[in-house]
């Protein structure tokens, strides 16, 4: 177990390092940052001063290590668009809003998708199963930005039940969470259903019934614990897409999170901030996947003892 986890932590660090290379390369490819940082009337001496200051006259690999050293200290430079603020500071300031919305969306989708998937498997080919299939189909077919706009139109503009946009209490989270989570609910539900169908057909489920174990325990303990591996794997992936998805959803709902910041930063060619967003999203994604791997080991002893 410890060896397994240590290996996973080590792999995560490697992944993080690889991402830092990509983030660094992106800034190199986008031309000299000095041009975008300087006021238009600045002279060449000023440019040279900044080039020296940022170490841009040194070889690329040296520049990377300077970048990495700074990044490790959380220093990704100053924002270009928002003068006087550090790039990382801006991201960290907005991160709680994104985590709040994303976390809410993920938790609610899981709490809906897994039980519905299990019940659909137990009652396969019944009206309940068909209903689940329709919900899943709708979720998979609707693009989230479109769904967001339609939800606003119906529930905020016409019915006036919920606010159109912005961050506030629970009522502000409902529409963006639905827009973000429906697609995930659909996929998670279908995966849970198919994994459960396979497990429910297994011999150990038959043996549990032979023992006289009550049916609810057969389904929710014996079968689900085995079937959970599949949706859990997907859970690690959707955690990533929830954050990348936040770029779209936060724009639609004017949710003041990192996604909205990313859009603003890209529009303003604010590379330090874009870099900080990319690194932060990657970090959160890797962390969630590390958590998923730990849960794997908890769920399945065959992984734990390898």
């Amino acid at each position: 177990m410890q060896r397994y986890l240590l290996r996973r932590v080590f792999q995560s660090l490697l992944a993080m390092l690889a991402i830092s290379v990509i983030a660094f390369a992106l800034s190199q490819l986008s031309g000299s940052p000095v041009d975008s940082m300087l006021p238009q009337d600045a002279g060449p001496e000023e440019a040279e001063r900044l080039t020296k200051l940022w170490g841009l006259d040194r070889p690329v690999h040296e520049q990377y290590f300077i970048f990495l050293g700074n990044a490790l200290q959380g220093n990704l430079g100053q924002s270009i668009k928002w003068q006087g603020q550090s790039a990382m500071g801006l991201v960290l300031e907005r991160l709680p809003a994104t985590l709040q919305l994303g976390g809410f969306a993920i938790i609610v989708s899981t709490l809906i998708a897994v039980p519905v998937g299990v019940i659909a498997a137990v009652y396969k080919n019944t009206p309940f199963d068909a209903f689940g299939k329709i919900i899943a189909l709708l979720g998979q077919a609707m693009p989230n930005f479109w769904l967001g706009i339609v939800l606003i139109w119906i529930f905020a503009v016409h019915l006036k039940w919920l606010p159109t946009s912005g961050r506030g209490g629970l009522s502000h989270m409902i529409l963006p969470a639905i827009a973000m989570g429906w697609f995930q609910v659909a996929a998670l539900m279908r995966l849970t259903r198919s994994a459960m169908l396979e497990v429910l057909d297994s011999e150990y489920v038959k043996l549990a019934r032979i023992k006289g174990v009550p049916e609810w325990r057969v389904v929710w303990v014996h079968a689900l614990r085995n079937a959970a591996i599949v949706p859990l794997t997907y859970f690690g992936l959707i955690a990533g897409s929830i954050f990348t998805g936040s770029v779209v959803i936060e724009t639609v709902f004017a949710w003041p999170g990192t996604g909205l910041l990313a859009i603003d930063a890209i529009r303003g060619r604010d590379f330090p901030v874009v870099q900080a967003v990319v690194l932060t999203f990657a970090g959160v994604f890797i962390l969630v996947n590390l958590l998923v791997d730990t849960l794997y080991a908890y769920l399945d002893p065959r992984i734990r003892y390898k």
Partner: peptide, 16 residues
């Protein structure tokens, strides 16, 4: 009670 055919698949892999 009953004993099933294949011991490899009759026991639940995730419980002791």
């Amino acid at each position: 009670s009953m004993i099933l055919q294949d011991p490899q698949t009759s026991l639940n892999p995730v419980f002791t």
